[in-house]
Computed example of a mutant assay.
Amino acid sequence: MLGGASQPLDVGRTRRYFTKTQRLALARLQGGCTADGCDWPPSMCHAHHRTPWHAGGKTDLDQGYLLCPRHHARAHDPAYETTYHHHRITFARTRPMRT
């Protein structure tokens, strides 16, 4: 898939990190952190793969979610279950907190 200036928006497994063009497209589509209730702007977010890169995930626009650093860490924390909705993500604790 190509963007307006013939910039690739889907690069599959050829690149691990999202390109500048992809990040701009994600910013326009998602408007910032996609974690439910978070209002961090796109410029302060990371581009997160829905399916992790190490597990065969692709660097394609439909697989990218913008997350602020706190929510990006939570997405990789095994103590939380991540649920993907259309351009939104919610988290639920799966293990009790240690006291």
Rank of each mutant, 00 (worst) to 15 (best):
P8F: 01
R16L: 13
G31A: 05
D10W: 13
P69D: 05
A35Y: 05
A75G: 06
P41R: 12
R74F: 09
V11T: 15
S43P: 05
L66R: 00
A79F: 10
R88M: 01
T19N: 07
T82G: 07
I89D: 07
L66N: 00
R93A: 14
H54W: 10
Q7W: 01
L26S: 03
F18Q: 04
F91S: 06
R74C: 10
V11E: 08
A27G: 15
C68Y: 08
A55D: 13
T21C: 11
T14Y: 02
Q22G: 05
A92C: 08
K58V: 12
P8A: 08
G37D: 05
A27E: 07
T21F: 11
A55E: 15
G32H: 03
M44D: 12
K20R: 14
R88E: 05
G31D: 05
G37N: 05
L26D: 02
D62M: 10
A35K: 04
R88Y: 00
T90K: 03
G32P: 02
R13E: 12
A27Y: 07
A27R: 04
Q22D: 06
A75S: 14
L9D: 08
H54M: 09
F91I: 01
G12P: 06
H85I: 01
H86D: 15
L29Y: 09
G37I: 02
D77K: 01
R50C: 13
H85T: 02
R95V: 11
L67V: 08
A27K: 05
P42V: 03
H86L: 14
A35H: 10
R74L: 12
D36E: 13
A35I: 04
W53M: 02
L9W: 06
Q7H: 10
A35D: 06
A25G: 05
L26A: 11
A92W: 00
A25N: 04
C33H: 03
T82W: 00
Q30H: 09
P42Q: 04
P8E: 06
T90E: 14
T21L: 10
G31F: 08
G32E: 02
L66F: 04
W53D: 01
C68M: 03
L66W: 06
I89R: 01
A47L: 07
P8I: 07
G31M: 03
R95H: 11
Y17G: 02
V11A: 05
Q63N: 15
S43M: 08
D10F: 15
D60V: 03
C68G: 01
F18A: 15
A55T: 10
C45G: 04
L9E: 09
A55Q: 15
T82N: 01
G64C: 02
Q63I: 10
T59Y: 03
T59L: 01
T21D: 15
R50S: 14
T34S: 12
Q30V: 03
P8K: 06
A55C: 09
R95P: 05
T83S: 12
T51F: 03
A47R: 04
H71R: 00
T82Q: 00
Q22V: 06
G31H: 06
G37P: 03
Q63D: 15
T82R: 02
P8H: 02
A79M: 10
G31Q: 04
